[in-house]
Design a protein around this nucleic acid. Structure first.
Length: 611
RNA sequence: GGAUCUGUAGCUCAAUUGGAUAGAGCACUUGGCUUCGAACCAAGGGGUCGGGGGUUCGAGUCCCUCCAGAUCCGCCA
């Protein structure tokens, strides 16, 4: 419940105008609040029409809490003195001075430092996870976003290379939902590829029923290899495999049954992994689902003149784009239909885009894949934009969320068919084991069952966070040490901070859901102030991570917040006799707890009571 | 051959997308537990941001060029 803020009494001595002003809570997102105020000042100065932007951002703590850099860029364009211009703006920001210390620095930076009373006001105003949610939920209210992630091929196990899409995708889903969007998680599985020809061929001839009963996915993988090897060695096998594929596509009941069995088994195995990662898809619309929807794509693209015949195939060029132009040195058209009449992933993806726009009324579509598909999705998006424009369909925002490859020691991307790559199942199991050893070492007194539960959370979180803590666009060499590191910017460090806060509440016999902090006063010590200043920047971290679709910005923020808390924890004791000191420190502890837990849950991690 | 991405401390990574003195962790050195959990904290050394040139008040970030690696380039997705 957000009511009037209990800051009134510190304001009694101030003017009536300021008093009334102070009854308005400082908004959830302080940077946005500053932006609004500066824009108003710029408008008063007549700068808005000339394209003035405030450029408010989080500042280096040494300089302030937020900084506005807009005067610099504007002055350059308008050939004015930036420092003088910044001063004119500052002169109009008098109302902000109740909450902030304003300073002008360097060539024209405007710095804003929150006063302790303003910090207290913000902390009092946003006092529960629900308050944080309410504060953030306006940005994408009423929008529907489709997030297409994980999307493995069936009949194969997921290996470490599949982890990034799942982990990053889930974090993005949660961030979008937190900003108010309705999110539809769509697992666009590869269930209709040519691999099924070879697979069905082998299934009919080399199936081992015992192996199928023990570990069906393992057996399907073996069968695929058998089929692949045989087809490579013998052209007649390849021919038979193609025939099996055609029969499947023509609806042959035996082949359909095998196909369905393979997919059902695969999805059940995938689900075990998803359960561990806390992922639950809303829909699983794989490539087969779009099978009957591609003719419309061919028709509409041809009618609108976007697609053309070329060597028997149906292709789309984008002449305005050097890379996809027909005039390129080596043309790279978007292959909508192959020369032999078969559909490819391009046509499936086009049909998928249309379905998402029409059926889900998507405001935005996010597709999470590795960087190798960059060209494909660029062509897809270019084609979709022209196609939708020609047919007057409403165009959703299209985002390809690209991440780097997970590579082996040779620096080359891991591929399923190379064999010997680490299976996701094994990775998660190993993570749990290593975490268990550590838990047992650190907290041997906890009962075995609890140590197991804790180890599960720590192990899985560590693996998830290994992907979320770094900028998604870079490649990395897979290593156990990296995935299961427990020091530095890692999940255990963050989870540890959470358990230390909870421990304080336990020690004081207080319920963290109902912290007695109504009488808390403004932060005083260096560490208290530093922690409070960090807490107030949570909305900015959320916004940055969501707008850029880069969850690591939130991870970095949480790591820094946990660091501030650790410094505070070491310096300032919370459970002390002085009731005033105690209340104001408990407030900081509690707000740290809700921000950390909310943030970690947004990244898809689970948190712990103790560890 | 063309295109895209990557290159930051010995190692693994950040840097709010053009902002102020490039920051963390690991490793190394030093100090801190009879005091709310030391899976922690405090402090120290360590950098021609791959090389070179350019754009401007300001560049790790943008442009050009060279070097190194990865990836893609009409029918597997």
């Amino acid at each position: 419940m957000r009511g009037p803020r209990p800051r009134a009494k510190i304001l009694l001595a101030q003017s009536q105008a300021q008093f009334l002003n102070q009854w308005m809570p400082l908004p959830f997102n302080v940077a946005t609040h500053l932006d609004t105020a500066i824009r108003a000042a710029a408008k008063a100065l007549g700068l808005t029409d000339q394209g003035f932007e405030s450029e408010v951002r989080v500042a280096d703590p040494a300089n302030g809490d937020f900084q506005a850099n807009g005067a610099l860029a504007f002055a350059k364009r308008a050939k004015q003195n930036p420092r003088a211009l910044a001063q004119q703006i500052v002169d109009l920001l008098g109302a902000l001075q109740t909450d902030f210390d304003l300073t002008l620095a360097g060539p024209g930076f405007i710095n804003f430092r929150l006063k302790p009373a303003a910090l207290l006001g913000w902390l009092q105003a946003y006092g529960s996870a629900q308050d944080l949610q309410n504060g953030a939920a306006s940005a994408r209210q009423g929008q529907t976003w489709i997030v297409d992630y994980s999307s493995p091929n069936t009949a194969k196990q997921m290996h470490v290379g599949h982890l990034r899409s799942a982990v990053i995708g889930e974090a993005i889903c949660r961030l979008l939902a937190f900003s108010g969007a309705k999110v539809i998680r769509d697992n666009h599985i590869g269930d209709w590829g040519t691999q099924f020809g070879k697979l069905i061929w082998a299934h009919k001839r080399h199936l081992d029923p015992a192996a199928l009963a023990t570990d069906p996915l393992e057996e399907f993988e073996r069968l695929y290899k058998v089929g692949n090897t045989a087809a490579d060695a013998d052209p007649s096998v390849l021919e038979e495999a193609r025939h099996e594929l055609v029969r499947l596509q023509d609806g042959d009941s035996t082949n359909l049954e095998i196909w369905k069995e393979i997919n059902d088994v695969s999805l059940a195995a995938f689900q075990q992994i998803y359960d561990q990662l806390g992922i639950k898809f809303d829909v699983t619309l794989g490539e087969s689902f779009y099978n009957d929807k591609v003719p419309r794509v061919y028709r509409e693209l041809s009618e609108s003149g976007l697609a053309e015949e070329s060597g028997g195939a149906l292709v789309v060029f984008h002449d305005e784009h050097p890379r996809f132009s027909r005039n390129a040195e080596r043309p790279n058209p978007f292959m909508v239909r192959k020369g032999d009449g078969a559909s490819g992933y391009a046509s499936t993806d086009l049909a998928t885009a249309l379905y998402r726009a029409e059926n889900f009324h998507a405001h935005g579509i996010v597709i999470v894949t590795d960087f190798r598909q960059t060209d494909h999705f660029e062509q897809l998006f270019l084609t979709v934009k022209k196609w939708f424009a020609a047919k007057k369909y409403r165009l959703p925002e299209l985002h390809h969320v690209i991440f780097g490859a997970v590579t082996g020691d040779d620096g080359k991307a891991l591929r399923t068919r190379d064999g010997g790559t680490i299976k996701l199942k094994e990775l998660l199991g190993e993570a749990e084991e290593r975490a268990y050893a550590l838990v047992t070492e650190k907290t041997p007194d906890l009962p075995e069952a609890e140590r197991r539960t804790i180890a599960r959370t720590i192990g899985i979180s560590s693996v998830q966070y290994a992907d979320l803590s770094q900028n998604r666009s870079s490649n990395y060499v897979f290593s156990w040490e990296k995935m299961l590191s427990f020091e530095g910017n890692t999940a255990p460090y963050l989870l540890y901070a959470v358990t230390r806060v909870r421990s304080i509440f336990r020690k004081a016999s207080l319920n963290p859901a109902e912290p007695p902090v109504g009488s808390a006063t403004a932060p005083e010590s260096l560490q208290e102030i530093s922690l409070a200043r960090k807490l107030v920047k949570f909305p900015d971290a959320i916004q940055l991570a969501t707008n850029t679709l880069r969850p690591h910005f939130l991870g970095l923020y949480l790591y820094e917040l946990a660091g501030e808390f650790s410094g505070f924890y070491a310096a300032d004791k919370v459970i002390v006799d002085d009731a005033a000191v105690r209340a104001r420190r408990l407030l900081l502890c509690h707000r740290t707890l809700i921000v950390l837990e909310t943030g970690l849950h947004l990244l898809g991690l689970r948190t712990l009571e103790r560890m």
